[in-house]
Simulated assay, not measured.
Amino acid sequence: MVEDWQTLLLGPYIPHGHCYLWQPGLVWLHLLSDALIALSYWMIAGALVYFVQRRPDVPFKPLFWLFATFIMACGATHLLSVWTLWFPTYWVSGGVKAITALVSLFTALELVPRLPLALALPNATQLMDLNRALQEEIGDRKQAEADLRAAETEVRQLNRTLEDRVQRRTVQLEMANQQIEALLARERRDRNVLQAAKDNLQDTAERLNLALSAAQMGSWDWQLDTGSQIWSPQTERIMGFDPDTVAHTAETWATRVHPDDLPEIAVLIERAIADQSEFTGQYRVCWLDDSWHWVSAYGRVVETQDGCSQRLVGVMQDITAAKRAELSLRASETRFRGVFEQAAVGMARLNLQGHWIQVNQRLCDTLGYQPEDLINQHFQSITYSNPI
């Protein structure tokens, strides 16, 4: 039983340090890098947990716990990378990476549907309009108070000679007082609503910026009627610019997109605007140092007027490392397939049950079979079975 567990944990593998030829400089480079990354991840996760516990009223609270969990899992994968330098427990390392992948995917699926809720909060323009309306109501109230004082003075002067008019004026004054009280009550309510909206907007903006920073994603906002755009600092970095150094326009963005990718992503954006829907796409951008980077973008129409799209918002993320790994894997598979098919000797791949899963033409010529005759057949099916 113990040997089975040792085989499962260690297996017929060698420590990862052998891949580095146990060169001290290279081993220490990977050890320190992975250790510092793991420490940073756990510090970030601890900060998120501390923030949520100190602020029990924070909205989207489950998202913070999800981010803390997946960041801690990422740190565990880097810590296991240090461990496997000397101990080849690759099954354990792979299991932790699988758990991290599931937690990361679940976190992403929980984050995306909540973006519209955050983006639907009142903006600064709406708050300014509300404040302007309150100022106008305050002016009306002051004017009403001035009119009331003038009316009260007139009533006192005519009190002795015009009793009937005093009674009618008294009724009018009572109605005016009720209106003023109603205005004052409405003003207090509006002030409270305005303050609550300001606080909520500030809290939401801070949480959104924290979530985007944790995911290393940039956000953008495009007013389609005016053509103006707003990019977050992370968006400018993903595009290869220093923050606040370029104009936030569609023309600036288009000049950085690869000419082969620009028509396709432009069609996706135009279709989303026309259908008042969303789009997802990947494309390459050129940085100022002439290096090309892959970007994954997502956008959605969030505001319409008279059946026309008015506002498009979205996020983007640098996926250069993942894209390069994908292209490298494809090239490796192509090279293996070429070597396998063009080998001067017969070559084949069998599964654990002994069935052919891949054969080259040289082997087929040697055995006198066609590839389709061997695939999925047991290797003993072409072996002479009678004893000598």
Rank of each mutant, 00 (worst) to 15 (best):
114 R>S: 07
177 N>P: 00
116 P>L: 04
259 P>K: 04
185 A>F: 03
239 M>P: 00
99 I>N: 05
164 D>H: 11
259 P>Y: 02
208 L>G: 03
26 L>K: 13
324 R>F: 03
378 H>G: 05
35 A>P: 00
231 W>E: 05
100 T>Q: 14
12 P>S: 12
381 S>I: 02
23 Q>K: 14
288 L>E: 15
297 A>T: 13
107 T>K: 04
346 G>K: 05
190 D>L: 10
282 Q>R: 14
220 W>G: 05
155 V>G: 05
328 S>K: 11
374 L>V: 02
318 D>K: 02
214 A>H: 07
350 L>P: 02
296 S>R: 10
105 L>Q: 06
29 L>N: 10
79 L>G: 15
85 L>I: 05
187 E>R: 12
150 A>P: 00
374 L>Q: 02
172 Q>S: 12
239 M>N: 07
58 V>T: 14
359 V>E: 06
220 W>H: 05
26 L>T: 11
238 I>F: 00
127 L>W: 04
262 L>R: 12
370 Q>T: 09
21 L>P: 01
281 G>I: 04
276 Q>K: 15
5 W>S: 03
51 F>Q: 09
217 M>P: 05
286 C>L: 14
252 T>Y: 01
155 V>Q: 15
316 M>E: 07
309 S>T: 06
327 L>C: 08
302 V>T: 15
156 R>A: 10
94 G>N: 15
275 D>W: 01
231 W>T: 04
343 A>F: 02
198 K>H: 11
198 K>F: 05
244 D>P: 00
109 L>K: 09
224 L>S: 03
257 V>S: 00
46 G>M: 08
302 V>C: 09
100 T>N: 13
337 R>S: 15
52 V>S: 14
233 P>W: 01
279 F>V: 02
370 Q>M: 06
286 C>R: 15
328 S>T: 10
101 A>T: 11
62 P>I: 03
110 E>G: 06
239 M>G: 04
259 P>M: 01
312 L>Q: 07
24 P>D: 13
225 D>P: 01
213 S>D: 14
317 Q>P: 00
116 P>K: 05
221 D>P: 02
40 S>G: 13
339 V>G: 07
200 N>P: 00
218 G>V: 08
287 W>Q: 07
35 A>Q: 10
7 T>M: 08
169 R>A: 13
